[in-house]
């Protein structure tokens, strides 16, 4: 077996797996930022296939296309984060179900099922306080509200 064909075969399969996993995540996850990450993952899968094809055919076209994919993904990141920020300001949460009124007419609504309560997430580690607290002059509290 020609090792170049083997390389093409393996890369195409890994690319397909990445694309498929990203697709599953995009369809099923409800956090808008995670959905966005999954869309990027699909782009990565396609990029792998393109690089493998480019190597197989000894052509830089595949790598050129990946460079443009990276550029377009950067645009996508900017716009998507702007839109997510905007939606977060309106709804107060990153849940995509909040915007399900935008779905097609013939689609059933998502029914939220009651989930069992879970203990709150463990807090992230933080540094302990060190040093002395500074002396605050009384007149400073007049113009600095956050003291």
């Amino acid at each position: 077996m020609d090792p170049e064909i083997a390389l093409l075969h393996n890369y195409l399969i890994v690319g397909a797996v990445l694309f498929g996993i990203g697709m599953i995540g995009f369809f099923s996850r409800r956090n808008m930022i995670v959905m966005f990450l999954c869309a990027e993952m699909m782009l990565q899968g396609v990029s792998l296939s393109l690089v493998a094809f480019g190597r197989f055919h000894n052509d830089f076209g595949g790598q050129m296309l990946v460079i443009f994919i990276i550029a377009v993904a950067a645009c996508e990141a900017a716009i998507a984060l702007a839109v997510v920020l905007m939606l977060y300001r309106r709804a107060g949460k990153l849940d995509v179900i909040v915007w399900q009124a935008l779905r097609e007419d013939n689609q059933p609504a998502f029914e939220e099922e009651a989930l069992p309560e879970e203990p709150p997430a463990e807090p992230w580690p933080s540094l302990s306080r060190a040093g002395l607290s500074p002396e605050i002059l009384p007149e400073e509290t007049d113009f600095r509200s956050r003291l």
Binding site: R29, K93, I97, L115, P120
Partner: peptide, 13 residues
């Protein structure tokens, strides 16, 4: 989130 948000704990279909 304060506590775990429900939308991170469940999936759509």
């Amino acid at each position: 989130p304060k506590g775990r948000a429900t939308w991170n704990r469940s999936s759509w279909e």
